[in-house]
């Protein structure tokens, strides 16, 4: 007998867009995974569990977000053991999420759809650059960066000699407004650029020292 894929598999896939800001931006990626599992259980939503010795709900994230970085439209895929109206999922998660996490939208996926992590190509970041007590104007650095054909950085890995990598090709769009820089960069498995690395390069172009603790980063959008 032929049945619909979803019925055979007996689970339903959803893609959730959510915001991670405020106090939630200090929650690390591993803790976020546990927190999602607990929030879903509190919301009375039945997850699909993995098989094996240690069954756990199947939730995957498009891309981990660094501790301290705001995420305005993060994406995760959630497998459920029941079909629920996507708007209902949003409402129920919002009543069970802790402070700083907000579900924005949700859609049901067809069973053959690739995961968000596999589809992810680009991310749009906002960076508020600060350096030793000053808020530097970044326009010159951005113009300089865009005019170059290659921008090499040296990547150090433990136990290996430093490797030169060209990051110019990973930056698609770049603009500055005073000390606020907006960057569309590669994100995901087939190429990834951390905004911290880009901010560091831009600062070194204008000969200032980036302050990693006061500079603020925000991931505004994840793009497939």
């Amino acid at each position: 007998m032929i049945k619909e894929a979803a019925t055979i598999n007996n689970f339903f896939r959803y893609r959730l867009t959510y915001e991670k800001t405020g106090v939630a931006r200090y929650i690390g990626h591993l803790d976020l995974q546990n927190l999602f599992q607990r929030a879903i259980r509190r919301a009375g939503i039945k997850s699909r569990y993995s098989e094996g010795f240690n069954p756990h709900p199947i939730i995957s994230f498009a891309s981990p977000l660094s501790v301290g970085t705001d995420g305005l439209a993060e994406i995760s895929d959630i497998d459920l053991a029941e079909r629920i109206a996507p708007d209902d999922i949003v409402g129920r998660l919002n009543s069970s999420f802790p402070s700083g996490l907000t579900a924005l939208s949700c859609s049901e996926l067809s069973s053959g759809e690739k995961s968000a992590a596999a589809l992810l190509r680009r991310a749009l970041y906002g960076m508020t650059i600060r350096a030793d007590g000053i808020e530097p104007d970044m326009n010159g650095a951005v113009r300089d960066f865009l005019s170059r054909e290659n921008v090499f950085i040296s990547v150090r890995r433990e136990g290996q000699p430093p490797k030169e990598t060209d990051i110019r090709g990973l930056v698609y769009e770049l603009r500055a407004d005073g000390n606020v820089v907006e960057a569309l960069v590669a994100c995901g498995g087939s190429g990834n650029l951390k905004p911290q690395v880009l901010a560091d390069v831009l600062c070194s172009i204008t000969n200032i020292k980036l302050c990693g603790f006061t500079t603020e980063y925000c991931r505004r959008e994840l793009i497939f």
């Binding site: 405020g22 200090y26 509190r42 802790p98 402070s99 700083g100 603790f213 006061t214 603020e216």
Partner: peptide, 23 residues
């Protein structure tokens, strides 16, 4: 925020100091 961002970014496990948990 209970403590400035610049301080929280310098400590291990900043979530120790932020609150906002369920409950």
């Amino acid at each position: 925020m209970n403590y400035p961002h610049s301080v929280l970014m310098r400590v291990q496990k900043p979530a120790r100091y932020t609150g906002g948990e369920t409950g």
